[in-house]
Amino acid sequence: MPGLKLYGFGCESEYVGANVLIGFLILLIFQFAGELIVIAIGMPVPGPVVGMVLLLIGLILKGEVPECLRIPSEALLKHLALLFVPAGVGLMTHFGLLKQDWLAILLALIVSTALTIVVTALILNPSAKKLHNLNQDNS
């Protein structure tokens, strides 16, 4: 992408290849900062979640998402589902417990997931509707 100028977060480089690498580095650095904070404070929250909050604060302060960060971020999020496969294969180490408690596990998961969806959606839906009406009134 010639002529594309990028500022801030250290991605002024002219070359898109190098930019994407810098964007990925930014993600890792924020994750690392999150991990350090979690260890320092002893929070039960995972480091990447804290890193996400830190990056969000950084983006709010900056006022925009630099292109070099957007490209690797959207690429990772597009393939988010793949990233769960290795952990999921770990189920094979628990066949014994699964065999013993499978009915309880299955019913508990289905019932509680359905209830969670209903409760969350019903609480949120009225305010989303209100917001829609507000937006329509303004325009």
Binding site: F24, Q31, G34, P48, M52, L76, F84, P86, V89
Partner: peptide, 25 residues
């Protein structure tokens, strides 16, 4: 298996951080 698959698993970290981008949008 995980010796190989860990390289995919590792990307969950940066992907979680990357959620800040659509959130900001």
């Amino acid at each position: 298996y995980f010796e190989g698959a860990q390289f995919i698993h590792f990307l969950l970290g940066p992907a979680t951080v990357a959620l800040a981008v659509p959130l900001f949008d």
